[in-house]
Amino acid sequence: MSETAHQDHIEKKAFLVNSSSLKDVRSFCREVFEKLQIQEDLKDELVLAIAEAAQNIVKHAFKNSASPTELMVVQISCENNKLQIAFYDRGTPVDPKKVKHREIDNVKPGGLGTFFIQEIMDAVEFKDGKKPWINHLVLTKQL
């Protein structure tokens, strides 16, 4: 946990649901974390977790075939040193029971992104998406 008091802040941005947007998602997160003065090492980890979650939307919720205008929204908020990152998308509804990283002794690729998210964040929660959204993922981390 950080000893620095981070200012309360909220910011959100919409991105097209495709793999080319992942770089933009990372840039957006870095900009917000700069404003929040989050320490460099933690910033890198948080950017990775957020990019992996966005990648899961492109890859799994839309199976790499979203329409060219389809959007996902990333919202970063910080309140009382608690960081919350929310994702909204209109892809296939996610069954939280099926979202898991693979077993450690299974050396096949895949499932690593979910493992990274769970390693980096304090909590990962799937909530009911309110219209027009279908999926609403919330990642939290105490700073």
Partner: peptide, 16 residues
């Protein structure tokens, strides 16, 4: 400068 799980997957496949 940056690598995510997609890159790690390439390393795992290469090693295998």
């Amino acid at each position: 400068e940056y690598m995510d799980s997609s890159g790690i997957s390439v390393l795992i496949e290469s090693k295998k």
